[in-house]
Amino acid sequence: MADASSIFAGIATSAQNGAPLYLQLKKAIADAVRRGLLVPGDALPSERDIATRAEVSRVTVRKAVQELVRDGMLVQRHGSGTFVAPRMDRVEQSLSRLTSFTEDMARRGMKVRSAWLERGIYPPSPEEMMVLGLSSKELVARISRLRIANGTPLAIERASLSASTLPDPDAVGSSLYATLEKTGNRPVRAVQRISAANLGDADSKLLEVAPGSASLNIERISYLLSGKVIEFTRSVYRGDAYDFVAELRLSSPDESGESIL
């Protein structure tokens, strides 16, 4: 790490530019990371040391650091301190192809693993009954996983299926779709709804980001060729790791009902 004094010095004396001190300190740290003066894995000095060198209060330091943690530039490890976050290549995910997480990451040459959060047979919730078309007497299979690529947690997937479709959730390995394909139940189309959100404490801990960090929440309903709903999945993706891409085409007169001329 470069001389910390040169990074943090002069913050208080530049207050005449009108920007709040914590924003000036945040910018100084962010600039140091972008210029390579602080590199991934470097530990920041303690809150007290930064406050002394920058001639600001510890409250100012804490606010600047918390914002950089929320932005994904810094990470805090309990009992260890604050570090420059590892650089992460963003994953570009097409919205026009119905593929599994395992297939997406394998295509990019990334090593994938999952940490199971839930796997079993349960009475369905009202939402599951409505989406999957289940009666109150039927059961639902739930599988929830933390999806990890190249050692970095990227997404939390929570899938629900009829227990008649997936009677043994323990049979699912790395890919749910591969398991469904064996029984002829792999979906052929899906409708997805994407919304922006801020992570709560539980999900942010799983994804190893600060509470309140940006996320992309995707609700997917998948169908068989017959039109039957086969899967209901709610996923939470790290906002700092994913870009979702959709191809748009000008509709033909047959599709829109109007002439394009």
Rank of each mutant, 00 (worst) to 15 (best):
M1C: 04
A2S: 05
F8N: 08
F8W: 01
I11L: 00
K26N: 01
K26D: 02
K26G: 02
K27D: 13
A30C: 05
R35S: 15
L38H: 07
P40I: 02
G41K: 02
P45R: 10
R48N: 01
D49M: 00
V56M: 10
S57R: 08
R58G: 09
R58C: 03
T60M: 02
R62F: 12
L68M: 09
V69Q: 06
D71K: 04
M73K: 08
H78F: 15
G79F: 10
S80Q: 14
S80I: 01
T82A: 05
F83Q: 04
F83V: 09
V84M: 01
P86D: 11
P86N: 05
R87F: 01
Q93I: 15
L95G: 15
L95E: 15
R97Y: 13
R97K: 15
M105C: 13
R107C: 12
R108E: 14
G109S: 12
V112F: 11
L117M: 13
P123V: 02
E128D: 00
E128Q: 05
L132M: 08
S135Y: 09
S135C: 07
K137T: 05
K137S: 09
L139Y: 02
L139H: 11
V140N: 01
A141T: 07
R145I: 01
I148N: 07
A149P: 06
P153Y: 06
L161K: 04
A163N: 04
S164H: 11
D170Q: 06
A171T: 11
A171L: 04
G173V: 02
L176N: 01
T179I: 03
E181M: 04
N185I: 07
R186C: 06
V188R: 05
V188L: 03
A190E: 04
Q192K: 14
A196D: 10
A196S: 13
L199C: 05
G200P: 08
D203P: 10
D203H: 13
S204E: 07
S204D: 06
S204V: 02
L207S: 07
A210H: 09
S213R: 09
A214K: 15
L216V: 02
N217V: 14
L225A: 11
K228A: 04
E231I: 10
G239R: 06
D243K: 11
A246Y: 12
L250K: 15
P253V: 12
E255S: 11
L261F: 14
